[in-house]
Simulated assay, not measured.
Amino acid sequence: MSTSHSDSASRPVAIVTGGSRNIGRAIALALGAAGMAVVIVARSDRDAAEQVVHELEALGTQATSVLADVAREASADLIVAHALERFGRLDVLVNNAAIRRERPVEAMSLAEWREITGICLDGAFLLCRAAIPHLATVPAGAIINIGGLTAYTGAPNRAHVVAAKAGLDGLTKALAVELAPRGITVNLVSPGRIGTDRSHASAEKNPAHHARNQTLVGREGTAEEVAAMVAYLAGPQARFLTGQTVHVNGGAFLP
């Protein structure tokens, strides 16, 4: 979609990593419905990313997509530069990109460990570092990290995922303290059992921890329910919330 800076200068702009599928797609659509222009970041599936762009445009908002591996240091600057080039500003960063494979820890290679932590945790750090100077120039800059239930409950065969998601919780608190003087809020949304398409290679079809983490409400959550919380934290009503972990899990975990 062709957009000039003057056309979009007054519209808040959000970057959503892992924005082409499942929770990321729902977040992008929720932010678009709230009136934001959205940059969809996907690692390799251009068609899926462009489909979300078309869905956002159908909502009457502006959108663009960029392919990038968030675990690579150069990608963060590329993603932020793309957002600024297309829309002229940056207001919200949603670090959602993740891989949730399962592997017994004694069989896990260092490369497998680093692949997961690189995307989930290193990628969030790199994007935050690149985005902060620009988030600090807008009236309501916000960073929202997407965590996970097993960071708090543990899970078999997920040492890399659990460690990375727990690290995101720590990163959220550290940045909330550091960035508050610059007017940037930093929060984490931790989804529980969410009904998503698990046919992609980045996720297990039947995660072992699901049998242990039953919800009180008797059902899985939806991607849209997670997205609604992200949209709230990205909006003007949440400016008194920072450094918080918000659990969207149907009562599967009671902190």
Rank of each mutant, 00 (worst) to 15 (best):
E115P: 04
E106I: 11
N145E: 11
F125L: 13
F125D: 04
L121K: 00
I144P: 00
V105I: 14
T117N: 02
P139F: 09
E115N: 13
V138H: 12
Y152D: 15
T137C: 11
G118D: 10
P133M: 06
L110F: 13
L149I: 15
L149H: 09
C120A: 14
T117W: 00
L126I: 08
E112K: 09
M108V: 06
L135T: 01
T150M: 13
V105T: 14
C128T: 03
Y152L: 15
P133L: 06
A107E: 15
R114E: 14
T153Q: 08
A107K: 13
A142Q: 07
R103G: 03
G147D: 10
A136L: 10
A124W: 02
G147A: 07
A151Y: 11
G141F: 06
C128Q: 01
A131S: 14
L149F: 05
P139C: 11
N145M: 10
H134C: 03
I143F: 07
V105Y: 12
V138D: 06
G148D: 08
D122Q: 12
E115W: 02
A130H: 05
L149R: 05
L149G: 03
I146C: 09
D122A: 10
I143L: 07
I116Q: 13
L110V: 15
C120R: 04
V105L: 12
E102G: 08
A151T: 09
L127A: 07
G123C: 04
V105P: 08
M108C: 08
R103N: 12
R129T: 12
G141R: 07
C120N: 14
G123D: 02
G123M: 00
L135E: 10
H134Q: 11
G141H: 03
F125E: 02
A142C: 15
V105R: 12
A131E: 00
L110N: 13
I143C: 06
C128V: 07
G147E: 12
A131K: 03
G118P: 09
T137F: 01
F125Q: 12
L121Q: 02
H134Y: 08
I143Q: 11
A111H: 12
H134K: 05
R101H: 11
P133E: 05
L135N: 00
L110T: 14
I116T: 15
G148R: 08
E115G: 07
G148A: 14
G118W: 02
C120T: 08
E102T: 08
L149N: 08
I143Y: 03
I132K: 06
I143G: 05
L126K: 05
L135D: 03
I116F: 06
T137P: 04
A130F: 00
Y152W: 15
A130W: 04
A124E: 01
I116E: 11
C120W: 04
A124V: 01
A107F: 14
I144W: 03
T150V: 15
I116N: 04
L126P: 00
T117P: 05
I119S: 13
T137K: 13
Y152A: 15
I132G: 03
N145H: 11
V105M: 12
D122P: 01
L126T: 06
R129E: 09
A130L: 04
W113I: 10
C120H: 13
R129M: 10
Y152Q: 15
R101C: 08
R103Q: 13
Y152N: 15
M108R: 10
G141Q: 04
P139D: 07
R101W: 10
L110P: 12
N145L: 07
I143A: 01
P133W: 04
I132W: 02
A140P: 10
E115M: 03
A111C: 10
D122K: 07
P104V: 10
L149M: 13
